[in-house]
């Protein structure tokens, strides 16, 4: 077994195990920690595909910013097990069936996929030069539209925050 195979298996175990732990732990703060573990293992996969930029941006944005905000909300809401809404048996069954259907569809779609095998640690697809050139030439319109979307979301958030302030006075 080569080093990359061992690394791949380790990282995959880490991501799948972390995701399962995230779903099964009762404590919401521990769930956040397991989700951070998942993000790190996914970044490891990016590094193996020679996409260092994606790897580090994944950590900065998801592990560094979004999960901190998650923690903020969890810590301030003070979630306890007694405030957790009761889940009844019927809802759980519906969840299992719909989740199973999704798994089935994904599996059948993946079975028909005929892609070239993934090249590990070669290629410049994920490097920052390639990514920047592609974003600002081929995909410049979607890129700008996405940034406008972010801007409108920001303005909307500020507007909601301001509205409360006026009513309070």
């Amino acid at each position: 077994m080569s080093l990359t195979t061992i690394l791949f298996i380790l990282l995959s175990l880490m991501s799948v195990g972390g995701a399962l732990m995230m779903l099964t732990t009762k404590n919401p703060v521990m769930s956040v920690i397991w989700l951070i573990v998942v993000f790190f293992s996914i970044s490891g996969h990016y590094v193996m595909l020679n996409a260092q930029f994606l790897a580090v941006v994944n950590i900065i944005v998801y592990a560094g910013a979004i999960m901190v905000l998650f923690l903020f909300v969890i810590m301030l809401m003070n979630l306890n097990s007694d405030t957790e809404p009761m889940r009844n048996y019927k809802m759980q069954m519906i969840g299992v069936v719909s989740g199973g259907c999704l798994l089935l569809i994904i599996l059948s779609a993946l079975k028909q996929l005929k892609a070239a095998p993934v090249q590990i640690a070669v290629g410049d697809q994920g490097l920052i030069h390639t990514l920047g050139k592609t974003l600002f030439t081929n995909y410049v319109v979607p890129f700008e539209v996405a940034s406008v979307l972010f801007l409108s979301a920001m303005v909307g958030a500020i507007l909601i925050g301001k509205k409360d302030e006026e009513n309070a006075v």
Binding site: F53, V56, I60, G64, V68
Partner: peptide, 10 residues
């Protein structure tokens, strides 16, 4: 430099 930025955010 992005690595530094990532570690700082952690």
């Amino acid at each position: 430099i992005l690595y530094v930025f990532g570690v700082v955010s952690l």
